[in-house]
Design a binder for these strands. Structure first.
Length: 412
RNA sequence: GCGUCGGUGGCAGAGUGGUCAAUUGCAUCAGACUGUAAAUCUGACGGACAUCGUCCUACGCAGGUUCAAAUCCUGCCCGGCGCA
């Protein structure tokens, strides 16, 4: 009897654009995740600035950590000796680990270039600098990259101490087995939105070969096979036909669920997800990697996404921005110095219920770490509960109205 | 009173004849952030017009030397230290 399951509860009405949205429940050895759900990012085995108790207060169900970062610090052996990620970080709920594939992008093509997963206008398409597959260290370093991609895997130069480390699909899976998260990901290459079509294709085919190797590596560990679910990652970048191809290829592989990774055009997000999710098996969960603005959550959910993770709520919190039902506000702005109102009366987060904007503004200005904590608690509450509210609206048949009302207010 | 060192933009502190509206840090005012190189990064920061830019007013105060002064000289004011 498997310790895992995914059950779809209710689907969106077919009249609705996309019509792929659904609610469901993912069961794991560490508990259930009611979907759609927002999974909080805790890269190094900690959601920055928050204790697990504070996390629970926000309503978060599950945490996603990172294989590459935990491999570098403290090392997967330490986490394993501690009894696995859950015990080590004192988090009882379901956990995930990303494979390190995103670091191929963030430490490679994107390194020092201010490139994000979303394509911006005027970016150089096909610039050699944006191609991570530079096959020797000197050239890679001269281009300011910390990783080199080849057919077998990726060689990283540690951003911490410059030491060299080799990641292959097999190694990533091995580390993820040691870390022991409930849901783990195949090792992929997250490509840059600036990469040209030829490179996207080359990387896509390689990622598919790595997907196959990831499955093989997973199946060779009988214990892990029992205790951990392995998700494949759909790539294809900005090319819709590649997205389609990727979904088709990976659907035929024996994954427990799917992540959708890589870069997008903001305007094309709905279309990309629709193409992919129309192909991915309906009975398996779909995770959208690294995306989580409020508008993206609606788009993702109505196009068939079950779970999301994103650093935005916690990252912008640490730099002084908080979500409100009318958009984000920057607490550093002068006007909040004497604003003793709550962050948002309509959002009953711990922070919003107990502290004023002026207090948060003071904490940030005086560089007190409590500011980061309170703002993170608020932002996670906001995003996590937005997804919960969307879930509820689907269950109640009110999705369209809920979306319209929320977005009208949010952008007013 | 004598001697000595020093007074630079909100603060600290560079500069010691032209490349200085003046390095840098902090503060301030904004902006960015989407599988976390991130308690980070970017921009503005004398004034007025304002596209590169142009014109004013500026390095304690007042004079002077010089083609040219935050930088040199004289006097004054203020502060630290030492001696009376």
């Amino acid at each position: 009897m498997s310790k895992f399951s995914f059950d779809v509860e209710k689907k969106l009405d077919t009249e609705i654009s996309g019509a792929l949205g659904r609610t469901g429940v993912i069961s794991t050895p560490h508990g259930e995740i009611e979907t759609p759900a927002f999974i909080v990012v805790g890269t190094k085995g900690t959601v920055k600035a928050l204790t697990p108790e504070q996390l629970l207060e926000t309503g978060v169900q599950s945490v996603l950590a990172n294989t590459y970062h935990l491999f570098l610090q403290p090392g997967e052996d330490v986490v394993q000796k501690a009894g696995g990620l859950n015990t080590f970080m004192n988090w009882d709920g379901p956990t995930w680990t990303d494979s390190g594939g995103f670091q191929v992008f963030s430490l490679g093509a994107a390194f020092g270039k201010g490139i994000s997963k979303f394509a911006k206008e005027k970016e150089n398409v096909g610039d050699i600098d944006t191609r991570p597959n530079i096959y020797n260290k000197e050239l890679a370093q001269s281009h300011g990259k910390l990783c080199i991609v080849d057919e077998e895997g990726v060689t990283f130069t540690s951003h911490i101490d410059g030491s060299m480390h080799r990641f292959t699909p097999e190694r990533s899976i091995e580390i993820q087995h040691a870390l022991g998260a409930d849901i783990i990901f195949a090792f992929d290459e997250c490509t840059s939105p600036t990469a040209d079509r030829a490179y996207q294709k080359e990387a896509l085919d390689r990622t598919h070969r790595w997907a196959k190797r990831s499955i093989l590596a997973h199946k060779q560990n009988y214990k892990a096979l029992e205790e951990q679910w392995l998700f494949g990652i759909v790539q294809g970048g900005l090319e819709q036909d590649f997205r389609k191809e990727s979904a088709e290829v990976l659907s035929k592989m024996d994954f427990d669920g799917y992540g959708i990774g890589g870069c997008f055009n903001k305007e094309g997000l709905d279309e990309s997800l629709k193409i992919v999710n129309n192909i991915l098996p309906e009975e398996k969960p779909r995770h959208l990697l690294g995306i989580g603005e409020p508008i993206d959550l609606f788009i993702g959910i109505e196009n068939g996404i079950d779970t999301f993770d994103c650093v935005t709520p916690t990252r912008i919190a640490r730099t002084g921005s908080v979500y409100t039902s009318r958009g984000t506000i920057n607490l550093f702005n002068e006007k909040y110095k004497n604003d003793f109102s709550s962050i948002d009366e309509t959002i009953p987060s711990y922070t919003s219920k107990n502290y004023s904007r002026a207090y948060l503004a003071h904490l940030f200005r005086s560089n007190e770490i409590l500011g980061a904590t309170l703002a993170s608690m608020h932002n996670l509450y906001f995003i996590v509960n937005l997804v919960k509210d969307i879930r509820k609206s689907i269950l109640e048949g009110q999705f369209v109205e809920f979306k319209a009302n929320f977005l009208r207010e949010y952008y007013s």
